[in-house]
Design a protein around this nucleic acid. Structure first.
Lengths: 112, 112
DNA sequence: CTGTACCTATCGAAAGACGACATGTCGAAA
DNA sequence: TTTCGACATGTCGTCTTTCGATAGGTACAG
């Protein structure tokens, strides 16, 4: 269907989360969603229905782990941070992403 | 799950098909699949379960149309070619793709 | 004490891609 | 002449990711 609303490419949410954790350090889910929205611009709203399942997925993969803590706003929150495996996974996902975009670029650049 | 096998980004198949038709002209499904595999390298196998539903989708959108013909190998084949709307759609999808990749690049480039 | 922003979570639906399967044709080799 | 492999189109069920809706809960300001 028409994709006027598509903001971040399908399947890249994991990468964006992992990369954010790598860049910023430990974050909780809500802040993560806010950051991704912010970096992407006002038009994007990242729903909780996306972020939390993704976080659960990443934790199950063993790429992030959880510790309960207290936020800057004094609320009980779940902090996520990269594991060792997660740190490696960021590199893997970046490599995959770049390989994939290179493939598409090959089509866009093809003149014959 | 783990993405060791990911080849072309999810959601870009339409773009690759449309762009191939724009570049090469009319093609049949099987040749299209072969071309995409070839451009992407040996590792990718584009299954029929992907290409034919995509072609049906694109035809329903009005971006491609069909004429029956005979292939170089003397078989009855369905040739697809871009419609006027399809020609415009290629540009739209390329713009969307570039916007989306720019967003991801913003994360990958962020150092803070 | 009431509303608002903050925060975590689940559910069902939609969509794209895939593997497996079904069906059939052409030409060449055995 | 039968059989086999490459060519060619298509469907079906399943998996995964994402989203909107919904729900439950806390801290603080007014």
């Amino acid at each position: 269907m028409s994709k006027e609303k598509s903001e971040i490419p399908y399947g890249t949410l994991d990468l964006l989360i992992l990369r954010s954790l790598e860049t910023i350090g430990r974050m909780h889910g809500y802040a993560l969603a806010r950051r991704i929205e912010q970096v992407c611009g006002e038009s994007l709203q990242l729903s909780q229905g996306s972020i939390y399942p993704a976080l659960i997925r990443l934790e199950q993969e063993g790429w992030i782990d959880t510790t309960w803590g207290v936020s800057e706003t004094n609320r009980k929150v779940k902090f996520y941070s990269l594991t060792e495996a997660g740190r490696k996974q960021v590199a893997v996902e970046i490599a995959n992403w770049e390989k994939a975009t290179a493939l598409v670029a090959r089509f866009l650049g093809a003149t014959s």
